[in-house]
Design a binder for these strands. Sequence first.
DNA 1: CCTACAAGG
DNA 2: CCTTATAGG
Lengths: 375, 375
Amino acid sequence: MVATGELCCHSDKSGFLFQAAKGKGKSDEETVSKKAKVEDEPAEEVNRGYFTVNIIKPHREVEWQILKPKKPKKGKGKGKAAAKPKKEASVESLPDDADTSFPTEVNPDCKTPDGRKPTIKIASWNVNGIRAWSEKDKMKYLNEVKPDILCIQETKCKENEIPDSVKHKDYKNYWSSAEQAGYAGTGLYTKQKPINVTYGLGIKKHDDEGRVITAEYDKFFLVTAYVPNAGKGLVRLNYRHKEWDVAFTDHLKKLDAKKPVIMCGDLNVAHKEIDLKNPKSNKNKTAGFTDQERQGFTDLLDAGFVDSFRFLYPNARECWSFWSYMMNARAKNIGWRLDYFVISERLKADLCDSIIQQSYMGSDHCPIMLLMSFK
Amino acid sequence: MVATGELCCHSDKSGFLFQAAKGKGKSDEETVSKKAKVEDEPAEEVNRGYFTVNIIKPHREVEWQILKPKKPKKGKGKGKAAAKPKKEASVESLPDDADTSFPTEVNPDCKTPDGRKPTIKIASWNVNGIRAWSEKDKMKYLNEVKPDILCIQETKCKENEIPDSVKHKDYKNYWSSAEQAGYAGTGLYTKQKPINVTYGLGIKKHDDEGRVITAEYDKFFLVTAYVPNAGKGLVRLNYRHKEWDVAFTDHLKKLDAKKPVIMCGDLNVAHKEIDLKNPKSNKNKTAGFTDQERQGFTDLLDAGFVDSFRFLYPNARECWSFWSYMMNARAKNIGWRLDYFVISERLKADLCDSIIQQSYMGSDHCPIMLLMSFK
DNA sequence: CCTACAAGG
DNA sequence: CCTTATAGG
């Protein structure tokens, strides 16, 4: 958890200077980046895409370092002055005594409601470029965690460019890549060969970006998806909401009619306020936290699916699976939950655990894992 | 000096694999890159742009490492078999007892023909991106060598993007940048403020790439140039030869009519066979060693100018100022002399030395320096 | 191989 | 900030 003052201080140290270097609003922000005036003045929340900063209105000059230990000035101070520098706290009014913890590694004692231990471990990771990731991770994840299946998003690599170094002797691979080089793309590592593997949604206009792989196993369909980002300025929000989300949910419903479904991946949405650090400033501004995207996810769940993590840990906080590379967001734990395991309602009985493996580096996302027990 | 076998071995170790990774002629070259068959079979010279390799025809399988100590097999062997693996030696028949050395650092005893010591040191360096260079060099060159003037080529940086970190308290700067971002561009560090500075050749079609700066000093015009590369496939050779070279020589002649000229920079030509490692395989194939470019340089000299280095060191060998970044060419000393100080005939009397400072790293070119004595 | 750019996130 | 692509060398 990060205090407002500290957040403010750090973000200016790194982020603003970076932005200034890019030539945007240079003069204003550079001034702010070195010193600022503060005294009982409200902080202003500013939305910078996946990262939000609180800018304190200039008043009294202080070095940023001094901001951190500023006492919270309880009481009302002068009007709303004291109230605003609170960080975006509230988060849909969680009870203060709720259990906000969640698992970041495998709990060896996890079980289904009727006491069965896991029989299968399925992982999902947006690797942000499989070539860069493989240089950083060096198969550490597969060797340490040994999931039965690992789903990969954002391979950013055409299938015929995939280097041998990403292959692993214990796993069979399936790839789906975008027509555009270096863009999107999904992949599958699986110990057991699936009964069948298909690519895309079966609708041409959604299927040239390598975003979906569907693998049929004995007991379930596994679907991994890299859902289209609504883009800077939300330029692709309409496509994402009105076309993709509809077609994708439809795809899952059709599968679910045949066999239970386990769907995972980077869904590019934080469902509720609890699912991102700064809900207020990002709401309807940043891709991934618009009403439309959130509703799209609600609609998906309403079609008979369960957000496995939130089902098990309704009050878990700071359960991010993504931190922007910008402005040191991961070090400051300013993140989003964008990666999910969504399962058919009837698989709740077989669910052992759903975890977020925040300790694994190598991407701007971390891996997540689902533990299931099949008889 | 590198034996043929060694050259062959190394280039395959690094270069081919790189090429293969890029997806060009993969199967053929990867085979060759691991093993090869050799026995009395002639090496074949292959032109790969700024780098030439000798490929030994497959015959007997050997590991590349074994190739190095292969005895030269003097005598004729079988026909031209023994003759070919000699490296491109001959080089316009230098006498074997000629002094092939040249200065790579300042000789404190250097003088004009009539015994005067230098009064000015002028340097020139193609830095291949001034931002990357400044991170690597960190002003070491200016602080150590302290030239009166340093001319820079390939800044690859618009003037308003030039960071403060490239500035030096002892020098005034002048910049000329291309309209195209990140392309070409020249610059000047000078202790003494010139009388006047102009940019380009005064002909619109040649002047939108920031290739020429002309600075007038008391005793001479200083011109620095980054001459257009004829390009892969020699796509720009016609422009370079018929238009640029003509206009540039004309520019120098006009200046020379007023005041002696010192011109320096990356002229993107190796004048004679002695000026590159592999003349045979590059002749009329690679940009920088076509008959046209070489003739252009000859024409320039014929207009009343002197290649200061070659004038002082007619037999100097391996006097490269450029080594391709590819295939470890610098470590193997496979290079070209592309950087020159060209001076007005009448400045020969004031010439102390012209050196190639091969020890300075930070670019694919090294700096060169001219030492002059003005009364 | 290396330095620039741009797009995408 | 970071990973891709591409141009230019």
